[in-house]
Simulated scan of single mutants.
Amino acid sequence: MATGAGVNQTVWSAIVLAAGAGRRFGGRKLLAPFEGGALLDGALTAAFASPAEVVILVTGSEAGEVAAAAQAWAERQGAGDRLQIVHAADHAEGMGASLRAGAAALPAHAAGAFVFLGDMPRVPAALLPRLVAAVEAGAAAAAPTCGGRRGHPVLFSAELFDPLRQASGDEGARAALAGLGPRLALIATEDEGVLFDVDRPEDLPG
């Protein structure tokens, strides 16, 4: 939910990247059964737990099925009005294409945007306010770390929206983060959900 009131209102957005073909998984990865739902449900749960006014889901491969699954999930939560679905027609290029599509749909008045990955279903909601606090304190972006490794999601301030709109290849947001130095706030957590992703069927819990 947005905070504040009137012209001083702080508005956040979120992007969920759900365009990949899941080739290493064998296809239909985001629709695979996971903990009583679909794998994508975990990323949606985290995104909708954020203070984002709008959650932008970027589809690519299996676009119709992924969009329908996400819309149905959001409706079940009574949050269908917060979900916006955009399609990255050039998704085969790599993550950069889906990130461009999501960033292009961001509202101009947003103070920042979370970027969630559709195959990371265990992002802890408790972490999200800490990322917001870091950006509100002046960081250009904020990301979690666990065991010395940088994880997801990343919260980008509005000053980085243009670099996100220019993302290319399979590098995703790395170019936008490059060179930030101490302006990239690293938020330490012991929750390995910030690192857990699913690439292959064997990554799913038995």
Rank of each mutant, 00 (worst) to 15 (best):
159 E>F: 00
170 D>S: 13
31 L>M: 07
182 P>W: 02
101 A>L: 01
53 E>S: 02
59 T>F: 00
73 W>M: 08
176 A>P: 14
11 V>A: 11
78 G>L: 01
71 Q>G: 12
61 S>V: 03
20 G>S: 12
99 L>A: 13
140 A>H: 14
5 A>H: 08
6 G>E: 02
146 C>F: 10
63 A>K: 01
88 A>S: 07
142 A>L: 07
42 G>F: 01
20 G>T: 06
77 Q>D: 05
99 L>D: 15
79 A>F: 04
33 P>H: 01
64 G>R: 03
86 V>N: 12
180 L>R: 05
103 A>I: 14
129 P>I: 05
19 A>G: 09
95 M>W: 12
95 M>Y: 10
18 A>C: 07
118 G>Q: 11
9 Q>K: 02
155 L>T: 12
124 P>M: 08
89 A>S: 11
106 L>G: 09
14 A>C: 10
29 K>T: 09
7 V>C: 08
153 P>K: 13
78 G>E: 01
99 L>R: 14
96 G>S: 04
136 E>M: 07
89 A>Y: 06
66 V>M: 06
45 T>M: 03
188 A>Y: 10
87 H>Y: 06
40 L>M: 12
108 A>G: 08
32 A>G: 02
3 T>C: 00
62 E>P: 00
175 A>D: 10
117 L>A: 12
198 V>H: 03
126 A>R: 11
70 A>G: 04
206 G>R: 11
166 Q>M: 09
190 E>I: 02
160 L>V: 09
170 D>W: 05
156 F>D: 15
134 A>N: 10
44 L>D: 11
43 A>G: 05
109 H>A: 12
134 A>W: 08
109 H>D: 15
201 P>E: 08
206 G>P: 15
198 V>R: 03
141 A>I: 02
162 D>G: 10
26 G>C: 03
136 E>W: 00
181 G>Y: 00
154 V>M: 06
201 P>I: 03
12 W>F: 10
120 M>G: 11
24 R>G: 00
179 G>N: 01
159 E>Y: 04
97 A>V: 04
50 S>L: 11
45 T>C: 06
20 G>L: 02
89 A>D: 15
102 G>L: 06
104 A>Y: 05
21 A>K: 09
45 T>N: 09
94 G>R: 13
83 L>W: 02
9 Q>G: 00
33 P>R: 00
184 L>Y: 13
24 R>L: 08
204 L>E: 06
54 V>K: 15
118 G>V: 10
11 V>T: 15
197 D>L: 09
167 A>F: 12
63 A>F: 00
135 V>A: 07
75 E>T: 15
171 E>N: 10
1 M>A: 14
8 N>G: 03
195 L>W: 00
93 E>Q: 08
152 H>G: 08
88 A>K: 01
198 V>L: 03
57 L>F: 05
36 G>M: 02
90 D>A: 01
157 S>C: 12
97 A>W: 02
1 M>Q: 14
155 L>R: 11
41 D>P: 06
146 C>R: 14
167 A>H: 13
98 S>H: 07
95 M>S: 15
59 T>V: 08
19 A>F: 04
65 E>Y: 01
188 A>P: 14
52 A>P: 09
